[in-house]
Design a protein around this nucleic acid. Sequence first.
DNA 1: GACTCAATCAAACGATTGTTTACCCGTGAC
DNA 2: GTCACGGGTAAACAATCGTTTGATTGAGTC
Lengths: 211, 211
Amino acid sequence: MGRKDLKTNDPGSKERILQAAVELFSRRGYGNTGLRELAALADVNLAMINYFYGSKKALLKEILDMFFSGYLEIARSELLGNAPPLTRLDKFIHKVVTFFSENSEYLLVTITELPHEDPEITEHKALWGKQMIATVKEFLDSVDLDSEIAELAVPVLFCSTLTSMMASKFLFNPVMAQVQPERLASVTLDDYADLVSKIFLQGLGSFIKID
Amino acid sequence: MGRKDLKTNDPGSKERILQAAVELFSRRGYGNTGLRELAALADVNLAMINYFYGSKKALLKEILDMFFSGYLEIARSELLGNAPPLTRLDKFIHKVVTFFSENSEYLLVTITELPHEDPEITEHKALWGKQMIATVKEFLDSVDLDSEIAELAVPVLFCSTLTSMMASKFLFNPVMAQVQPERLASVTLDDYADLVSKIFLQGLGSFIKID
DNA sequence: GACTCAATCAAACGATTGTTTACCCGTGAC
DNA sequence: GTCACGGGTAAACAATCGTTTGATTGAGTC
């Protein structure tokens, strides 16, 4: 059997370790997660973690890389093109919200570890950031913006604000689920994407009848 | 001397501990910060941390409480009132951005620890969340929104998206400062608040000349 | 059968974790 | 004087941390 697991598609030890890492890092945080707890959840021996990944930090890097590469791929395929800018943005927002939802644990690990300064990981983050900014800049250059906002909406801020807005539901979910679980459940994922798209593209003001 | 430090206004040990905690928790993360490093930065004995605050987690609670109370205070004073809704929102955004900027370390600690499940702290977060949502709900009830977005913009999502958007600059700052430091520096804090306000209230679409 | 190699394991490594203890010092009360 | 007490300290507590070691398994190669 040249390849592993031809019949069964249950994940091997290496995959189970990464699954457990994503789950625990997103729920407890990277620093608050112990490798023994992780090994127990993945149902592997403690030593297998360093055997497959080398170190705990390498596990985190793997998670960040997988998230960033998926996000960047969507940005490149949806943000650039010939369709009208607003149409491109709307499709981008819907695709990203879906991506964030399907990989919400990866998203949470990435966002919560984003501001922390760690020499090894900061390089990784900066590398992905550069590619992301380059893509956003290419998009913004293809849009004819009013001068009054063109000076403000520099790529770094445009990218930050939009990303944060799309991620907001998943960032606040653990808290909001305790505050108003019924109202949260009444809004589907597509509804949420619509909300983000409408506010970001048309603004809240356009939906106010009397002001 | 009944009160401490009548002449000098340099902070006492208790205050220095909290200052060091905010700095280290925001830079390295709560879980990645050791109390010995914290004590060294605060220039106090290790035992003084538990003497004044009882535990490491209590320090985190203190930080979260201080941030939430300040944020909630602004929401209550700016979101509710008699001025037109959009005027209120614009003032709210500018005040919050200033508040986030002046307390960016508190903001980072709060946001990065927000999604993590910790029985003791989850209650705290939910308590503040309820008060915040109640305030936002009161604001939204005073606005006459189109039905097409009124169903989507439930308080929990409205609060999440706007908060995330206002916090985005500070969340992404550590990364973006490495990507494009010169473009970031060219935008003042007021410019940033204007950008958030314009996009959220008027939408990006209203600034595009040709589509 | 001998050899290889990746996978797995129990056990221990030294270091660091958050927390607590017992002791010390200065000040104010009585 | 001495008693109490809040602030401060060094040292140690048990527990856990990430990582490494050395041995063992089992399937594949020659």
